[in-house]
Design a binder for these strands. Structure first.
Lengths: 178, 178
DNA sequence: GGTTGCATGTAAAACGTTACATGATTTT
DNA sequence: AAAATCATGTAACGTTTTACATGCAACC
């Protein structure tokens, strides 16, 4: 019974406390989204199959006339989560369209590069702003906070790199103009 | 005619010089792979559809009895590439299973965290080694080199972060043991 | 009465990897 | 003679996003 990392996102959150699929999605969007995203189209079917595999159990928990299914980890689910945590991480992937545009910028004679770098820097700074907003509401402790700090420092580093690279580009442009 | 960023990887490389699908894959694996991967299963079908769209033309160019199709950009292909380069980058995604394991490390009482951090650091250092090997064979100029430098500095920063975080973890462990 | 938020789910499409199948040439 | 490299391609599978469909409840 091989589970995808996305399944462990769900198991990990249910280890904190019982939750509905909707709640899981809300927390994902404020936390793991920056290094592991998940959509409703994954979460609801995955909850069902985890339930069939006996790793979680769902219970109807309607709030008034509004339906709601709350899931919790089973003992087997907790074991599966721990086993995964002890194993070596395997997946590491990045898709960065900005870097790709920078990589091929010679096709515009380099003209497109400054704008691309600015857009990349803006993107990273926007993420920093979002993460800082989350940080302001988070207790400064624990692993979720450690990873949040990683996100902030990481995107700050990236934004700074974009600025350095932009400045270096200007310099070479000035030098060839002189 | 919306093209995926993967299509632009192909157009971008063909803007450098005419190439076969096999060659494109070889160059991808030494360069863009670290921020935009592509498999044969994408490259060959994409070459065909770019050809049907009139953005590239293929010509049989067998080497002895070994078949080989070399593609080159058309004027329309060059225009499409430039238009894409001038537009804002949109896709930015990361999937980092190590961060996910760190994020949920409290489920092992934090016990799994040091090993996860070490594995993450090892992974980043291995990428740095690969990129440095490429750097040793690259002329230190141009946008491909700029992006290569980004890769090296980026993964070095990441490896260093993992070491810092590991050290911080040890410190808190020592403090609570004392 | 309208908007926003809570809540669940499916279907289709897009995207991507892996394994398979085939065969020539070059290097060891 | 074997192994590595060059070379093309498809099929099956798995993953992920997006759009759609539905409806209640709370707030303004």
């Amino acid at each position: 019974m091989e589970l995808s990392p996305t399944a462990y996102v769900i198991l990990g959150m249910l280890d904190w406390r019982p939750m509905s699929g909707y709640e899981i999605k809300g927390i994902v969007d404020k936390s793991t989204r920056f290094f592991w995203a998940a959509s409703y189209g994954q979460i609801y079917p995955e909850l069902r199959s985890l339930s069939e595999a006996g790793l979680v159990t769902g219970k109807a928990n309607p709030q008034g006339g509004r339906k709601r299914n709350v899931y919790r980890l089973t003992a087997a689910g907790r074991r599966a989560l721990r086993a995964w945590l002890e194993a070596e991480p395997e997946v590491y992937e990045t898709r960065d369209e900005g870097l790709l545009k920078l990589f091929f910028a010679s096709a515009t004679g380099g003209e497109s590069a400054p704008k691309t770098l600015e857009a990349m820097g803006r993107g990273h700074r926007r993420i920093v702003d979002q993460l800082r907003a989350t940080e302001a509401q988070s207790p400064p402790e624990g692993f979720a906070y450690l990873v949040l700090r990683y996100g902030i420092e990481f995107h700050e580093w990236n934004a700074a790199w974009c600025e350095r690279a932009g400045a270096a580009l200007e310099e070479t442009a000035d030098r060839s103009a002189a």
